[in-house]
Amino acid sequence: MLELPRTIHDAVIAHARRDHPDECCGVLPGIDGRVTRIVEMQNAERSPTGFSWESGEVLALHRDMDDRDEEMLVVYHSHTMTEAAPSRTDVRFAVGATGPDVHWLIVSTREEATTEVRSFLIAADGEVSEEEVRLVDG
């Protein structure tokens, strides 16, 4: 289960809507499993089908998180033409780069009226488990 402060949930959706039709991406740092804030990252690909991060921005993010004793709790991004579920690329990077403890939060902006927001944990063998997103005050 991923507990998500309502303001951060809304900020993720706003980011996804703003960058549509390109994919948006970012990080929700946390302490002891609780999301502390939202960090919008630049999509270096500026693409409707993929995202990546520029290495200087990654270094700055991690130094900032270290200073605050935070960890990379959630990685979020949007799918703008398909459902909010991990693609093969997402699974490959979850296994290779983030590891099984990082939540993959995916937003779908393919429908104008509704925004799908779903969260997944992806095991070291690539098995995908969807988890509940519980909105909390904050």
Partner: peptide, 15 residues
């Protein structure tokens, strides 16, 4: 020497 995860992803053009 700092090693950090290089995160990327996205829907991909196949789906």
């Amino acid at each position: 020497v700092t090693i950090l995860p290089a995160v990327a992803g996205g829907a991909g053009s196949q789906t």
